[in-house]
Design a protein around this nucleic acid. Structure first.
Length: 202
DNA sequence: AGAGCCCCTG
DNA sequence: CAGGGGCTCT
């Protein structure tokens, strides 16, 4: 019997999925986490349902109105789950990009001048940091494609910094725009509720 | 309005 | 990772 809400295993699964997709759509997430269920009616603790006093923000009033017109605990639950998954990937990206920038600056400080010198291999420091974060148990075979994307990302940061683009507060936006195009298909196995067992035991 | 993303915090 | 504010786009 699967417990309600997102479990530690779901988190682990999400992290492995990050190796394929950095920017999953909410619809995609819904299909890959369709096994997440609500335990029962009205157990969902969303901000909408907590709002009782209209003494504060108008935004909360809007939520309350929404809840009264459309009070479907199930839908509220799914909405909540989806946004939590979206949040997870947002956090994943944050870590990812922070590592990339750090490593790129470090390379520059170390005297690297050519982007050709920056390669992501399975034994390099950056890869180990990423693997430690998304695949801590190291029981999953990280797809080669991820290494390519990571390398592209690293070089993107490197070139931007070398070109002095980091003086612009929003200089990373351009990089994000490039990276979001590099998502690959997530293997079908991930749709299975028991994908972790299937993935890690082969 | 609502969904998302990012940034900064804790 | 979760919270919360700010900004964008639909």
């Amino acid at each position: 019997m699967q417990k309600e809400g997102l479990s530690p295993n779901h988190l682990k699964k999400a992290k492995l999925m990050f190796f394929y997709t950095r920017y999953p759509s909410s619809n995609m997430l819904k299909t890959y986490f369709s096994d997440v269920k609500a335990a029962g009616p009205c157990v969902i603790r969303t901000p909408e349902m907590f709002v009782v006093t209209p003494l504060h923000s108008t935004v909360k009033w809007g939520y309350k109105k929404m809840a009264s017109n459309d009070c479907h605990p199930k839908k509220e639950f799914n909405r909540c789950i989806t946004s939590q998954l979206i949040k997870w990937f947002s956090n994943f990206r944050e870590f990812y990009y922070i590592q990339m920038e750090k490593y790129a600056r470090q390379a520059i400080n170390d005297g690297v001048t050519s982007t050709e010198e920056l390669c992501i291999t399975r034994d390099c420091e950056l890869y180990r940091a990423l693997n430690m974060h998304y695949n801590k148990a190291n029981d999953f075979e990280v797809p080669e494609r991820f290494l390519e994307v990571a390398q592209i990302t690293l070089r993107e940061f490197f070139n931007a910094i070398i070109a002095g683009k980091d003086v612009d507060p929003s200089w990373k936006k351009a990089i994000y725009k490039v990276i979001c195009k590099l998502d690959s298909e997530v293997p079908e196995i991930f749709r299975s509720p028991n994908c972790l067992q299937e993935l890690l035991h082969e």
